[in-house]
């Protein structure tokens, strides 16, 4: 399951809190980092590491939007649709992405490269419209910039 290195990280993280339950969010992040998403099997495993019942872990995983409850594409596109981005054309860019990728919001391309999600405010209102792809922010977007980024991701994936 977890790599040696990740098991060592779990032990380090547990030391930061008086109760092991507090390590749950950070350890779930490690799980998502290693497996790409959080399966029921992973929830059982993480629960076992921290001495927590499965139903508690399941409750937490399903409460927080960033834990992937099913596999996502290699590039997980999360487009901000909230007010400041909306005022600066986010709707059009989301439609543009749907058209370009041939999928609807919430879907993954058949080649497994891209997942498209609409998300709430990402704290980039001054550089709207914007999207987060995996861990990175891409801001002040236009349709040209979005196209260039998709090309760039496709090239990266071939390497």
């Amino acid at each position: 399951m977890f790599t040696e290195e990740n098991l060592r990280r779990v032990e380090e993280i547990k030391k930061r809190y008086p109760k092991p339950m507090a390590a749950l969010l950070p350890v779930l992040w490690i799980a998502q980092e290693q497996f790409g998403w959080i399966s029921e099997e992973a929830m059982h495993y993480v629960g076992g590491l921290l001495g927590l019942p499965f139903n508690h872990v399941l409750g937490v995983v399903t409460f927080y939007t960033m834990y992937n409850k099913k596999p996502v594409g290699k590039y997980n596109i999360q487009f901000c649709a909230n007010i400041s981005c909306m005022l600066r054309g986010a709707d059009n860019l989301i439609e543009h992405l749907e058209h370009k990728l041939g999928i609807k919001v919430g879907e993954t391309t058949s080649d497994g490269l891209f997942t498209l999600k609409e998300v709430e405010c990402l704290g980039s209102c001054g550089t709207a419209p914007m999207m987060q792809v995996n861990n990175d922010y891409y801001e002040d977007l236009t349709s040209e910039k979005v196209d260039n980024l998709l090309d760039e991701f496709r090239k990266q994936a071939q390497r």
Binding site: R16, T65, C121
Partner: peptide, 8 residues
């Protein structure tokens, strides 16, 4: 530093 996971 403790990282959340997406919840306003």
């Amino acid at each position: 530093v403790h990282r959340g996971a997406g919840a306003y």
